[in-house]
Amino acid sequence: MQFFGGSEISPSPPLPTASGNNAHMMYIFNRNGVCLLYREWNRPLRTLDSNQDHKLMFGLLFSLKSLTAKMDPSSAEKGNLGVPQLPGQGCSFHSFRTNTYKLSFMESPSGIKIILVTHPKASDLRESLKYIYNLYVEYVVKNPLYTPGTPIRSELFNTTLDQYVRGLG
């Protein structure tokens, strides 16, 4: 039983568009902050080495989540800033945009974080992230040779992911 959608991979991936690849990079973290996967399609600028970069990205998401949980205007009682929260607890966020990129973020109930960095004009990618999560479930979690918490080294997952992301508008 999957958490999102039906038993098969849904929705069907969109057809590749002529506009080409809009995605810059993607990260998958588990709940302990281990970077399970880092894919890069188009990244001209690198300011840090990859390990530092992953840590900084995880730290940014972690702090932004505590910021949004505290700032949430819909509830009065939110606890202190920075109290540990389980996935799904408190107000989270799904994307932010700067002048050079847009970051879309999804967290599964088990604490898997999927981050996709795209062109700033990209549309709402929440459904796409769910689709990528389904790919992860199908090709990684259901792989008997995969040990949870270790970096993903599945050729099949990588190629399917590349194909799907290339088709994103």
């Binding site: 990244r43 949004t68 205007p73 107000c91 966020f93 799904h94 945009r97 700067t98 050079t100 970051l103």
Partner: peptide
């Protein structure tokens, strides 16, 4: 930090953050 993580040169930080309730 968001400027540091930019894949392209010339990032000036977050302009819009879309959270669940705001």
């Amino acid at each position: 930090i968001s400027q540091q993580l930019s894949p392209i040169l010339g990032c000036s930080g977050i302009e819009l953050l879309e959270a669940d309730t705001f």
